[in-house]
């Protein structure tokens, strides 16, 4: 070794009178350069859109809050909400069935997931929409009705989106349930709780922590997938936007209108999702920063240092 051995006296001298450490953090010049390049490129793109003479912005603004578009938006949100509710309910039931000891339920659940995940959503929507071609009447003998009375375009859309979502949700919920520590189930069983009680009171609430983030993703995906129903003539956001452009020929403008609304909705959903994640983290972590802080963190110049992180932790533990 070429370095001379320091003596303990030397170290004591060096440490004498020093206070808190204010060291120079490691710089990351690459990040700054890349950031600057992206800002410039993004600015150029936005500028080219804004100043583009081929886009009539007044048409965009006029229609953005027009009655037709807002009604379409309402339909889109309604579809999303109902389909998600159906999907979530089905998903929980299918996941429980899949994990149950009952072999009939296991098989039914697996078969359902196989069928609905194995075929494209668009095809499923078209199948539901055209169900009357296959089953002209639903029910038995006297107690039957014309299929087209029940399966309207909106009904077909709900069925298609909801049943398809159920299959995906089942896999998410199953993953969540399986992530719960076995000891929790054993402790509940040892206290004399019945299986059903253990599932609903002990396992599912803890599974939620794992389930919420992907459900948020699925909600956002669902909102966007509802645009598929425009092909079966459901008057959703995209369908209304296209209906208007079919009359005024401002195709690109109307697509921007739809885009702005979709983006706004997904942004709001993302914020709600973050709040929910925090809520279900209860009992597991003491340090999830507020949603606003988390968003701001990535936009702030500089980096989050360990001291800042520590402050967040300390603030949290005080609460």
């Amino acid at each position: 070794m070429s370095t001379p051995n320091p003596r303990i006296d030397d170290l004591e001298k060096a440490a004498h009178g020093t206070g808190d450490i204010h060291s120079v953090p490691v710089r990351h010049p690459g990040q700054a350069v890349a950031g600057a390049l992206i800002v410039v490129a993004l600015g150029a793109l936005i500028w080219s859109v804004i100043t583009n003479d081929n886009i009539r912005w007044e048409i965009v603004f006029e229609n953005l809050t027009g009655a037709t578009i807002l009604r379409g938006l309402g339909t889109t949100l309604l579809l999303t909400a109902i389909a998600m509710l159906i999907g979530l309910t089905l998903g929980v039931l299918l996941a429980i069935a899949r994990l149950s000891k009952n072999r009939v339920m296991q098989t039914v659940s697996s078969g359902y997931i196989w069928l609905f995940r194995g075929t494209p959503l668009l095809v499923q929507l078209l199948l539901w929409f055209n169900l009357a071609l296959f089953f002209p009447r639903l029910g038995f003998g006297e107690l039957s009705v014309d299929t087209n009375v029940i399966i309207t375009a909106f009904g077909a859309a709900i069925l298609g989106l909801g049943l398809n979502e159920g299959a995906y949700m089942a896999e998410i919920v199953r993953g969540g349930i399986q992530s719960v520590n076995r000891g929790q189930i054993e402790a509940a069983a040892a206290l004399g709780m019945r299986q059903r009680h253990v599932t609903w009171r002990i396992v599912l609430p803890q599974a939620m922590r794992v389930i919420i983030p992907p459900i948020g993703n699925n909600l956002i995906t669902m909102l966007k997938m509802t645009s598929l129903v425009s092909v079966i003539a459901v008057p959703d956001l995209l369908n209304r936007a296209q209906a208007i452009s079919a009359k005024n020929f401002y195709v690109f403008e109307m697509l921007i209108v739809a885009t702005v609304w979709y983006l706004l909705m997904t942004t709001i959903f993302t914020i709600i999702q973050m709040q929910l994640e925090k809520r279900f983290d209860r009992g597991f972590s003491t340090t999830s920063p507020r949603v606003g802080k988390r968003l701001a963190k990535n936009l702030r110049p500089g980096r989050v240092t360990n001291t800042e992180l520590l402050q967040v932790v300390q603030e949290k533990s005080k609460e």
């Binding site: 520590n181 000891g183 929790q184 054993e186 402790a187 509940a188 040892a190 002990i202 609430p205 803890q206 209860r282 009992g283 597991f284």
Partner: peptide, 11 residues
């Protein structure tokens, strides 16, 4: 029953 890992319901 009391378990080695306590197994209190975390939520």
């Amino acid at each position: 029953m009391v378990f080695q890992q306590f197994n209190l319901f975390a939520h």
